[in-house]
Design a protein around this nucleic acid. Sequence first.
DNA 1: ATCGATGCAAAAGTTTTGCATATAC
DNA 2: GTATATGCAAAACTTTTGCATCGAT
Lengths: 156, 156
Amino acid sequence: MINQILTYKEVLEIFKKLLRSNSLKYTKQRELILEIIYNNQGHFTPEDIYNLIKKSYPNVRLGIATVYRTLGLLEDANIVSSISFGAKGKKYEFGLGEHHDHLVCIVCGAIEEFVDDTIERQQELIAKKHNFKMTNHIMKITGICKDCQAKKRAKN
Amino acid sequence: MINQILTYKEVLEIFKKLLRSNSLKYTKQRELILEIIYNNQGHFTPEDIYNLIKKSYPNVRLGIATVYRTLGLLEDANIVSSISFGAKGKKYEFGLGEHHDHLVCIVCGAIEEFVDDTIERQQELIAKKHNFKMTNHIMKITGICKDCQAKKRAKN
DNA sequence: ATCGATGCAAAAGTTTTGCATATAC
DNA sequence: GTATATGCAAAACTTTTGCATCGAT
């Protein structure tokens, strides 16, 4: 897992290299999908990404199928990662750069990110103990966020 | 979070109490869904559960919609928990009893479970630090399992 | 007797696929 | 020029909803 911040140019180079080494083609659509995910920090459904591109680049032709196909490609290459946040469908986010985990509020849906060294280290130990060659890991804490707890108290 | 092993009878009692206190009805279908999840340790899609019940109890009428509705109910009550394993759709498992996390093989799909005290403790600290009232947490390590690593070596 | 639950089928949503055409190499 | 990618539309799935009927209380 790469744990340093990469510029868009560097990421694009990684992607291009990946395409080349698999005899795949570098297309405008593929670039835009990567760019949107890189530039908009956050968690997006395939449809979100489709809509963002349609809005930002109205003159580029794009089908939703291409978004699905490209996300699959990017996920295989670990450039993006996906997670299911309980809501319907999967969400994707940029996956190179510092790894982080998620706190998700079950009331308002807010997502906070965190990084915790103890957790990171322990995960590696666990994988080793089970003879797993770890390629990725996800941790998600669900609960009620500060704001929603306050609102709840106010109501009572 | 309840951290002790409960008998089926105890779980059923919890479920019945939940139903009663919400003016919901105790039906054969609801009981069978709970029973199947309790007795078959593992991770099931709603369709899996539907098929298991159809096979085990061919004379009980059951629609897939009821499975979805009941799983929603059981999940809200924390009696079952759901997780998305990358494959399509969510999978459900029994959620009372000792909490555990998952190692998922990206090659063969095998799921191993583990319990790790350090992780558990750290999660509580993180939730506290972010003022989250934690209701649940999931950790998933993806990688290549021992067997698939061996097969891969054999091929090369 | 009442009110919620159920099955069914239709609808809504999500993801994948086939194919003719377009585009990168 | 060749091989892969694309958009589109259809198909395949997954999940939810409306409604008449059934069944638990």
